[in-house]
Nucleic acid binder design. Structure first.
Lengths: 209, 209
DNA sequence: CGTCGCATTGATATCGCTCAAATCCGGTGG
DNA sequence: CCACCGGATTTGAGCGATATCAATGCGACG
């Protein structure tokens, strides 16, 4: 497999704090997952919460026609499948969009710690709150009618620095899925916005002009 | 104002538990808000979390053109503005969509209780998890491309009983906003689905046929 | 009884989806 | 080193679903 990479620098604005996993030492399991590797499937027993160290993981549900619907894309530093603590089974399928490193946090151990460790509870509450805020932002973004407005919203809410620079986690194609657009529509919107001088693009990043 | 109505029956599947407010006795404030009454505005200091007893509250953010974007619609029994605990200011504006009764839970008191009362922490974690799950469902719903699929998704995920009966919280117009549709598109989709025998409608409710 | 907002339906415009094809780019194997 | 391959990226053409604009009915409420 892959050798364990250095942890990304801790950035409190966009990452979950590392404290949580420290308290679970000895009960966690480290996993390296190759691109397109399945971490868990919808319907299987919910055993663990996950902490993504590097790479990128997509969470999908599937419609009647079997078409994938992207409901979340976890980035380095984030937790995913938090609902495992209060659910019997996973409600979605997790797939590594790139080679990824992650820590498996067994649900029983997590529940124990939540019941006994106030610091741990506080951290978990903050993590859930942060995720909730992000989910609500995504709801807001998807409620916008035009593709260009969604791109603009993405930059304004997720971009960093004065130019609201947004670094692509993976590919534009994946980004299109999280924006509720086809990749063609996204390509065209970006091209048009660049033509109009609204945004600036470099390989792997987008920012307001 | 309005006389305090009877509390709705506690339904653990769709409501937040009443325990939380019990522990805050003496620090809460009851408020009756008329239709279109503003509970708080985006940008004002985040003083409290709210527990909605009856009625319906819409949470909005506003685009450049001043157009409202519905990001959430709180129902009786739910909490809203949970992020107040970890934020300086409200990120959205709350408006009563109907005459509503609610309890104001001051943020400092909430933080105290979270730091000292494990039961309270556990309840709050479950509340946040539930909200997060719902928000993710809404993301999934908004990612669906067709209006009919969104309606179907709504019934499947929010409907109750064998027929997935969904009781309209307020109006179809409000529902259209939460589905990311114009009200005309929703009307037409419902009419078409009923014509095709996919759904059944009565005043104030929709269900699968 | 008048008014206001919701519900509904019609006509038209438009944006994004679909299908299609060409190019680019990194990786792989000969 | 180069040919090949697969996936991402990009652009084109046409269509269809939804937005938009408009008009009407209807019920609640003052």
């Amino acid at each position: 497999m892959v050798v364990s990479p250095a942890l990304p620098a801790y950035d409190p604005d966009h990452m979950d704090p590392p404290l949580l996993t420290d308290r679970l030492l000895g009960q966690t399991r480290h996993r390296s997952v190759p691109r397109d590797g399945v971490i868990f499937r919808a319907g299987s027993p919910a055993r663990a919460v996950w902490h993504l160290l590097s790479g990128s993981v997509g969470l999908f549900r599937y419609g009647r026609g079997g078409e994938a619907v992207a409901i979340h894309q976890a980035q380095a530093g984030e937790y995913f499948a938090e609902a495992s603590l209060h659910s019997e089974r996973y409600h979605c399928t997790a797939v590594a969009l790139r080679p990824s490193e992650m820590v498996e946090l067994p649900a029983p151990a997590m529940r124990d710690l939540l019941a006994t460790d106030p610091d741990f509870s506080r951290e978990w509450i903050e993590t859930l709150s942060r995720q909730l805020r992000q989910a609500r932002l995504r709801v807001e973004r998807l409620s916008l009618r035009s593709a260009q407005e969604r791109v603009r919203h993405l930059l304004l809410t997720e971009g960093t620095g004065p130019r609201h620079r947004y670094v692509l986690p993976t590919t534009l194609k994946d980004l299109a899925a999280t924006l509720g657009l086809t990749h063609e529509a996204l390509y065209r919107s970006l091209a048009e916005m660049e033509r109009q001088g609204l945004i600036r693009r470099r390989t792997g990043e987008i920012s307001l002009a």
